[in-house]
Design a binder for these strands. Structure first.
Length: 371
DNA sequence: AGCTCCCGCCAGCCT
DNA sequence: AGGCTGGCGGGAGCT
């Protein structure tokens, strides 16, 4: 099968034109997301993805593990992952946040700072209550070090601590806990780069240079944005690397005015956003379930909106219109954070589909009233 | 020169 | 036993 998702894919096979950025995890992630985020895609086979993306399977593991950490994917079976979509992120992050805050209160007596609290927490979304202090089991030790757990802990750093900007050093040492062996730090940094590049390509975080140290630092931007902060309103290209994940980040950083009010604090904005996202997700799940019930199968699991060509769900016209209005209201308050090209196109498609569907629903209701 | 991170080896797990 | 999964660190590209 040909690779339609490679951007400029001709040169990367040519050694003379080889550029490292063509193989970056961030770019690969973007391509992988393009591959998944399409009509009719419900599950993803790793082999298939690797083939289509023209990379070895090993790289796909990295991507899926990180995506799984924020709920975008979930493992279905060996070699098979379920595509949950971007709309799953807020819920997953909220879960992580709750988990992180809960652990903050339970282990804060043994951990010295908020960053270490995160590192002390070995649990993940699937395996709660397994925070073993000894780390005696090899398996547990391995799990603790897994990219998914690291990614989740990385996310927690942003959501369970007061810090806005997390430096590479700080993140690495936080993810390491009390251990500060240089080699371990180096290893952790490598993994951190992997995770960060994927998150950057998803535009969940951005990488900037710390104004104080000039060292790289990360900021959560997906919806925790502070409207007044410089990085939230303009792109700081001078401080950003131009290869790797940043290749997908050429567009100035998102405008968050749509879902952040001047009258609200950061926390309020975030809580509101999470609530909205959850509501949106719940509605989406409702609709998806109906679609699936009515039409066989695993055919479609869409993102936040269903395309116009979708079969009608079983809800009544009135309910449908009400649902439509709710969605419209939500859509007007909330704009997706993913402003890379693929996500923009996808969102444009959803909006268009949604408008069509809305008109049809209104017409149908109108007809019912007349008869 | 130091930072960044791709690449693939290989150990552990699963079927 | 063989395939799958993914931690890990060497070392090359990049700034």
């Amino acid at each position: 099968m040909s690779s339609s998702v490679h951007t400029e894919d001709s040169q990367w096979k040519n050694p003379s034109n080889y550029s490292r950025k063509d193989k970056s995890l961030g770019l690969l992630c973007s391509n992988f997301l393009k591959l998944c985020d399409r009509e009719g895609v419900d599950s993803i086979g790793l082999d298939n993805a690797a083939d289509q993306l023209g990379v070895e399977r090993r790289r796909i593991y990295d991507i899926v593990n990180i995506l799984e950490s924020v709920g975008v994917l979930s493992r279905k079976a060996k070699n098979q992952y379920r595509w949950n979509g971007y709309s799953a992120i807020p819920k997953a992050v909220d879960l992580l946040k709750k988990e992180g805050l809960k652990d903050h209160s339970t282990v804060s007596s043994t951990c010295h700072n908020s960053a270490n609290v995160i590192a002390c927490n070995h649990s993940d979304l699937k395996e709660k209550g397994e925070c073993e202090t000894s780390g005696s089991h090899k398996n547990d030790n391995r799990k603790e070090k897994s990219l998914m757990i690291l990614a989740q802990n990385f996310v927690k750093l942003f959501h369970c601590t007061d810090v806005d900007l997390i430096s590479l050093d700080k993140a690495a040492s936080a993810l390491l806990g009390d251990m500060h062996d240089p080699m371990a730090m180096k290893t952790k940094s490598r993994r951190l780069y992997d995770i960060a590049n994927v998150f950057v390509s998803m535009e969940l975080i951005e990488k900037i240079r710390s104004p104080d140290t000039g060292k790289p630092a990360f900021r959560w931007i997906a919806w925790k944005g502070n409207p007044g902060s410089p990085a939230a309103t303009k792109s700081d290209d001078s401080t950003r690397r131009t290869f790797g994940a940043d290749i997908t980040n050429t567009i100035p950083k998102r405008c968050r005015a749509d879902f952040s009010s001047d009258l609200m604090s950061n926390g309020q904005v975030k809580r509101l956003k999470v609530a909205k996202d959850e509501e949106l997700k719940d509605k989406n799940q409702e609709i998806s379930t109906e679609q699936l019930n009515e039409h066989d199968t695993k055919e479609f699991v869409f993102g936040p909106f269903g395309p116009a060509s979708l079969p009608r769900s079983g809800v009544s016209g009135k309910e449908k219109l009400k649902q439509t209005q709710n969605w419209e209201e939500l859509a007007s308050k909330f704009r997706p954070q993913y402003q890379n090209k693929a996500a923009s196109e996808l969102f444009a498609h959803y909006v268009e589909a949604w408008e069509l569907w809305q008109v049809e629903a209104a017409n149908e209701l109108h007809k019912q009233h007349e008869h």
